[in-house]
């Protein structure tokens, strides 16, 4: 790890702190919901530590709460996670090392760190990615512990408007991209496609389909 890497990592840590705050509150509400669904404190915390993928955890627990089995819960969570496939396609060339080591580095991806580590030219700053993920990892664990133990005291977190944090962040990262005409086109196509799939596809699939819609640009560029 050179001086540049250390600087990137520190920059990532700094950028990750506000998302750590949001992660803490989100995982607190996960802890509450998991307990209400019949998870023990240990099971709720274990799920956050082992899985560490917010939307997938919420999706799986929602299936169990509705009376579904483990297979259906894992499938729902995995569909929610499927966006990490196109994100992985984008990130993979920026991860060095042997195959197992690249895979391990890939585990560090969360939405916000992926977005913040993108340099905009198709390459990624991996140390900035690790730095941005770190505070969110710690906060995700701590929030789940607090939520799992203190559920009844906390109640409904939506009234604080915290569900607006993540979409507002993604919008803030997206807006500068829209000044470019090609990217604006793909954004519109991806957004409309995702929205059109919402009523008909399982949760998670609309975002995956939008990511793969970018491949449509590959065909367009192939044309002379």
């Amino acid at each position: 790890m050179g001086a540049d890497d250390r600087a990137s990592f520190r920059e990532g840590l700094r950028l990750g702190v506000p998302f750590g705050v949001a992660s803490f509150l989100l995982s607190m509400s996960f802890g509450v919901v998991a307990r209400e669904t019949g998870f023990s404190v240990l099971a709720a915390v274990a799920m956050s530590v082992l899985v560490f993928a917010g939307s997938a955890q919420f999706a799986a627990v929602a299936v169990l709460a509705a009376g579904g089995g483990a297979g259906a819960a894992v499938a729902a969570g995995t569909l929610m996670n499927s966006r990490f496939l196109p994100m992985g396609i984008a990130l993979a060339p920026s991860l060095p090392g042997r195959a197992w080591w690249r895979g391990l580095q890939g585990l560090a991806v969360v939405d916000s760190s992926w977005a913040l580590a993108a340099r905009g030219d198709g390459t990624f700053d991996r140390w900035r990615l690790f730095g941005t993920t770190a505070p969110q990892l710690v906060a995700w664990y701590l929030g789940t512990v607090v939520g799992a133990f203190g559920g009844e005291l906390i109640g409904d977190l939506d009234r604080f408007g915290l569900d607006a944090v993540y979409p507002a962040f993604f919008l803030a990262v997206l807006l500068p991209e829209l000044r470019d005409r090609d990217r604006r086109g793909v954004a519109v196509v991806g957004g409309l496609l995702a929205l059109a799939l919402v009523p008909v596809a399982p949760p998670g699939v609309p975002v995956l389909a939008a990511g793969l819609a970018a491949l449509w640009g590959l065909r367009r560029r192939e044309a002379p």
């Binding site: 390459t123 997206l174 957004g191 995702a194 389909a209 560029r221």
Partner: peptide
Amino acid sequence: TGVIALMAPALLTALVVTS
């Protein structure tokens, strides 16, 4: 890599609108 650069706006827009 040109297409990869296009994935970010597509995924981000989808995350925003589905949220």
